[in-house]
Amino acid sequence: MIRAILVDDEQLNISNLKALLNKHCGSVDVVGTANSVDDSIELINKLNPDVVFLDIEMPDKNGFELLKAFQSPNFEVVFVTAYDAYGIQAIKFSALDYLLKPINIEELKASVNKLEVTLQHKRDNKRLQNLISLLDKKIPNESPKIALPTMKETFFVPIANILRCESSNNYTTFYLCDGTEHVISKPIYEFDEMLSPYGFIRCHQSHLVNKEHVRSILNQDAGYLVLNFGNKNIPISKQKKALIKELLSF
Rank of each mutant, 00 (worst) to 15 (best):
C203G: 06
I244S: 01
L131C: 07
I44S: 09
L12V: 15
R202N: 00
N210F: 00
L66N: 05
E246D: 14
Q89A: 05
E181D: 11
A160D: 02
V80M: 02
P73E: 05
N228I: 12
S40Y: 04
Q11M: 10
V214R: 00
P49G: 12
H207D: 01
S237I: 03
Q129S: 12
K186N: 09
N48F: 15
V112G: 04
L134T: 00
D192W: 04
G26K: 15
D192A: 05
C177N: 10
D221M: 11
V37E: 00
A222R: 06
N231K: 15
N161D: 13
N170Y: 11
N219V: 08
H182C: 07
R123M: 13
S216Y: 06
L248E: 05
D38Y: 10
S143A: 13
F64W: 08
V80K: 04
I14F: 00
L195W: 03
F174T: 00
M58R: 14
D60N: 15
I91K: 06
L163F: 05
L163S: 09
N219W: 09
V78G: 04
M151E: 14
L21S: 04
C165H: 05
I105R: 07
Y171E: 08
G26L: 15
G32P: 02
V31F: 06
P59F: 07
N169S: 12
Q129I: 15
A4F: 08
E153L: 15
I2K: 12
N125F: 12
S72R: 14
N35S: 12
E10M: 12
I88W: 14
S133V: 04
K245D: 05
T150C: 03
F155N: 11
L227A: 02
A95V: 13
Q220A: 14
I132G: 04
S206Q: 01
D60I: 12
F156M: 01
A95I: 09
I56W: 06
K211C: 07
N113V: 13
E106A: 11
L134V: 03
I91F: 15
Y83I: 06
S185N: 12
L135T: 05
G63N: 09
E212A: 11
V226A: 10
A160S: 08
S40A: 14
L176V: 00
E166L: 01
V117W: 06
H207F: 03
P144Q: 03
A19V: 08
A90K: 08
I234N: 01
T33I: 14
A90Y: 03
F250T: 13
G87R: 02
M151C: 12
L134M: 09
A147C: 02
V37Y: 04
L17F: 07
I14K: 02
A19I: 10
L12Q: 13
A34W: 02
L163E: 06
Q11R: 13
I132E: 01
E246W: 10
H204K: 04
I56K: 03
G230R: 01
H213E: 04
I244T: 07
D178S: 03
V117N: 11
D124T: 09
V52N: 07
L12W: 13
S167I: 03
L131S: 07
L208A: 00
C177Y: 09
E142K: 13
Q129W: 14
K152E: 12
E57T: 10
D9C: 06
I41S: 11
S111W: 09
L47N: 13
L225P: 05
V77C: 02
G63I: 04
L6T: 02
E142G: 02
K138A: 08
